[in-house]
Computed example of a mutant assay.
Amino acid sequence: MDASAKKLLTELKNKKYSPVYLLQGEETYYIDLISNYIEANTLSESEKGFNQVVIYGKESPVNVILNHAKRFPMMAERQVVIVREAQEIPDLAKEMGQKLLLDYFSRPVPSTILVLCHKYKTLDKRKELGKKADQLTNSSTFKKPYETQLPEFVAEYIKSKGSVMEDDGIAILCESVGNDLNRLTNEVDKMLTGKSEGQPVTADDVMAQVGMSREYNIFELQKALIAQDTFKTFQIAEYFAANTRKNPLIMLVAFLFSFYSKLLLAAGNSGSSEKELVSILKISPFAARDYMNALRKYSLPKIIENISLLKEADLKLKGVNSGSEDEGQILKELVMRLIH
């Protein structure tokens, strides 16, 4: 979990509240996680009716938000005002709107907890509001995680749900979904449905969830190429060639291009340990083993040649110099040339 998100949640669980929370940045998962926790846990159910307001930025100019924030709680110690999609506040970019917010940040109402959920971006640091907001509020900026951070995130999340996932399953899930934390957690939640507490999530469960064949998938193709297993490579290529609608070949080529590009970088750092490769290539610890194995099989000139072959195949799949070859033929020729 993001360090600042963990710190905020710890403070909230210990009932240490701030008058203004500014939650901003590209990674919306933590913004939702924290604001949802505040909404669910700060007030008792009997207090929420009169003392908790959830509004949306698009419908709420700054003066409307501050009218809510400046009210006093009724028969409660505090009130909560949550502004979702705060990046859409109509006058947020205007001088008067920013001045009103800045004035409130400087002198907030102590009995109000104002939560601004500013998604996908941060306040403009060139403006006075953006410069001073971090000093005047409990502000957290959440960035998209690196690929290397995803396995730990998934393992920690599934542990919090009382279960575990096989390492191969974590690797497949992270590679398939990428750094979309909302989707990662949704996929995990779906896989846990129907499982008893403590029952592990297997790699087969993950493949079924993401719609991937156990034997014929992009990860098995990469492993076959690393091992330079001609039979297995061609077998998987045949499967993909026969199922191009379900497995777009342009995406497959892009995946392999990324692999060989990172392999080139790894070759330029020969002698690095698995742990060092994780940092250099920004990959998961599980993937580092594959790169170490590939470095034993592929020479530097061959890696460079393969990158060139993948660029050529990408152009052909987009209709450039493809001649009479169909997508399946382009793929089968490509994988054979990648090995030999």
Rank of each mutant, 00 (worst) to 15 (best):
G268Y: 02
N182Q: 09
A86W: 04
P73A: 11
G198A: 06
K7F: 08
L281N: 04
S60H: 05
F219V: 12
P73G: 04
K282T: 02
F240S: 09
N321Y: 08
E274P: 05
L295C: 01
N41P: 00
F255G: 09
V54C: 14
R84L: 07
I34E: 11
Y291R: 02
K15F: 04
I330C: 04
K311F: 02
Y30C: 05
Q222L: 09
F142E: 05
K316L: 03
E175S: 14
A69R: 08
N67K: 09
Y298V: 11
Q149H: 00
G49R: 10
Q135T: 14
A76L: 12
D2Y: 00
L252N: 10
S4P: 03
Q149D: 13
C117D: 06
Q209F: 05
D134E: 15
A267P: 05
F72A: 03
M1E: 07
V335C: 07
V253G: 15
K282S: 00
R126A: 11
N41T: 07
L263K: 00
S111L: 01
V115C: 04
C174Y: 02
N67C: 09
I226G: 08
A237Q: 06
Q24V: 10
I31M: 08
A254C: 09
F153D: 04
F234H: 06
P285T: 10
M212P: 11
S139G: 08
I339A: 05
R289N: 06
V80F: 06
K316C: 05
T202Q: 11
Y56L: 12
I172S: 11
R71A: 05
V83G: 12
S18P: 06
P73S: 10
